[in-house]
């Protein structure tokens, strides 16, 4: 990709982020923070690339660590968010547990 194309994509993503987020009601801010937290775990893609292309022990080690961190960020982030949101839509008639 040309540099200008890359910059364009980035800037547009930032503006979409500003626009979409501004409309979320305050009650959902905690799940939202958690969901965006999971989304930036997309760095995992970077971890996989680095680990997959590593050909010396140091790169292998750092790439491995990056991938583990990324996976924890993604999996943990989405699971935690789902647990929170599940509570918002649970039907009251289910009764006390």
């Amino acid at each position: 990709m040309t540099l200008i194309a890359v910059i364009t994509i980035f800037i547009l993503a930032v503006f979409v982020g500003l626009e979409v987020i501004a409309k979320v009601p305050q009650t959902l801010h905690t799940p939202l923070m958690s969901a965006t937290n999971a989304i930036h775990g997309v760095i995992l893609v970077g971890g996989v690339i680095v680990l997959g292309q590593a050909n010396d022990p140091l790169s292998l080690f750092l790439g491995f660590l990056a991938t583990v961190f990324g996976v924890i960020n993604v999996v943990g982030g989405f699971v935690v968010t789902d647990r929170m949101l599940e509570m918002f839509i649970r039907k009251p008639k289910k009764g006390a547990k």
Partner: peptide, 16 residues
Amino acid sequence: ALLIGGGLVGASGLIL
């Protein structure tokens, strides 16, 4: 994927 995901979160985190 990184550009867009990162940019979205960078902006949303700031707003929040």
